[in-house]
């Protein structure tokens, strides 16, 4: 199998929901597995997600047509695949911790992807109910990171 073919196959698989694929032809055997497969298969408990949403914010128990208000909870989900950091450097204090109040636009965490340090901002005002991921852990697209109680 030449490189072009292989690239085609990888590109095709990326448009699909496959996690792992085996291919055999004329004595060539190939197994492709997504790097983020584990993160996809084993979401952190409390995940309540049906479809990837355009926004990383989802209400924990969505009900059609309901307007979110004070006392409701939202889950902040990872918008990208990467490594989760709670602080700007190993010596720095975490951006937020359990029970902290957060403003809209405040930085919640950093997710490093391809060496870019991405600061993830809160899209809501509220109180951090729980931090769901350990510092330095890999996260996948849509993985729940924080639960925030709206205020």
């Amino acid at each position: 199998m030449d490189l072009e073919k292989l690239k085609e196959l990888v590109e095709f698989l990326e448009t699909k929901d496959f996690v792992e694929v085996e291919y055999e032809n004329e004595g060539v055997r190939l197994r492709l597995r997504r790097a983020e497969a584990e993160a996809r298969i084993n979401p952190v408990p409390t995940a309540q997600q049906d479809m990837p949403a355009p926004s990383p914010f989802q209400k924990t128990q969505p009900e059609q047509g309901e307007i979110l208000g004070e006392g409701d909870y939202v889950t902040v989900e990872s918008p990208i695949v990467g490594t989760f950091y709670r602080a700007s450097s190993p010596e720095a204090d975490p951006f937020v911790g359990d029970g902290d109040t957060v403003e809209k636009g405040q930085v919640l965490c950093i997710i490093e992807a391809m060496k870019v340090m991405n600061e993830i901002e809160s899209e809501v005002k509220g109180r951090v109910k729980s931090v769901l991921v350990e510092n330095g852990q890999p996260v996948g697209y849509g993985d729940p990171l924080f639960i925030i109680e709206l205020s």
Binding site: P54, P56, P79, V107, K115, V116, M117, E119, E123
Partner: peptide, 9 residues
């Protein structure tokens, strides 16, 4: 060192 600021997607 590249840094970005992400809001939603």
């Amino acid at each position: 060192l590249e840094e970005s600021f992400v809001s939603g997607s």
